[in-house]
Simulated assay, not measured.
Amino acid sequence: MKKLLFTSLLTISMLSACTTNEDEKVNEQDQTQQNDTQEEQQSNENEHATTESNGEDTVSSVTQAEALKTIKEQLGTELAVVMPNNLPLTKGNFLTATTNGTDTQAEILFLESKEYIPVNDVKLKNASAATPIAKLTVKLFDSVDEASKQIAYEDYSKNGGQQVALGYNINGYQDAGAGSLWTGWNEGRWAIATHTRTDNPDAGVDLAKQAVEYLESHTLPIPHENGMVHLDVYESGNLIVWQDGKLVYTLDSIKDPMKALAIASVFNQ
């Protein structure tokens, strides 16, 4: 009887010890998994922080790509509108826009804001919420000939005027009248001109030289058939217009003339 009781107690003790060991193993596994999860979360947080600190434009650039996609989706038109790849934003700002479209016309007012604002958000009705970057209008005409009439294309070499060297073997031709002085030249299918006042003639030539140098390394959209650029020294009349078959693209409402060229040069033509 004593032997049987001793055997029972020994069995119970061994079972208890096994159970304790199993519990300890489970607890150790749970603790290991918990530690691994915490380390993974911390690693992800550190990686995210590193991305933000090493590339401050990452968030805004991703948002810009998404904004451009949304802008095209919300145009409200079936026109095959070509969009720019990107727009020059103030560092840390976000791209947004208001859009308006019909069967024959699409209009986009590109804006930048310090805080993220969705495209066509009601907040954009407040002029202080975002700053205009540029306005793009794309209009469909009844025919290619009708569209071509909207382009004030000129062959400046045939118009006469005082010749001036603009660099890179390009000559400009100056024409003055009513207090204004234009310096015009041609590059490919584009007619380009800068405007200044007659009492500040050097400014027009300087701007023309900057534009010529810029276009040595940047390409404007290929027009079908022609395009025109007007760059204003006084930042009041910058205008870029080009034809794509029956469609006419117009870029305006851009203060900085060189920024106007920069925006035109990033279209997917």
Rank of each mutant, 00 (worst) to 15 (best):
T194Q: 02
G227V: 02
K25A: 07
N21G: 07
S236A: 06
T7R: 14
N169Q: 13
N100C: 12
P257N: 15
I240H: 09
G245P: 03
E146I: 03
T250F: 13
T219N: 07
P221N: 01
A49H: 05
V164T: 13
P223Q: 04
N54H: 05
L239H: 15
E216F: 11
K158F: 09
S217D: 08
E45L: 06
N85E: 03
V119I: 11
L68T: 02
G160W: 02
I254E: 15
S8E: 13
I133D: 11
E78W: 03
Y234L: 06
N268A: 00
T51V: 15
D232L: 08
Y234Q: 01
V26Q: 12
S157P: 10
T37H: 08
Q243H: 09
L75G: 09
A193E: 11
L181S: 04
D206Y: 13
L10K: 08
V164I: 07
N54T: 07
K149P: 02
G177I: 02
E225R: 06
K72T: 05
I254L: 11
V119G: 04
T77L: 10
R197E: 03
G177D: 00
V205F: 03
Q42V: 07
D199N: 01
P257M: 06
S128C: 05
V233P: 09
Y156M: 03
T63W: 15
L10T: 01
A152H: 14
H195T: 00
M14N: 04
Q33M: 11
D202E: 12
E47Y: 15
E78G: 09
N54C: 06
A106F: 14
S157T: 01
L10Y: 04
V241L: 12
A129F: 07
A134M: 07
S180T: 01
K139G: 12
N93T: 12
L207W: 14
E45Y: 14
A191R: 08
N21H: 05
A127D: 07
D206E: 10
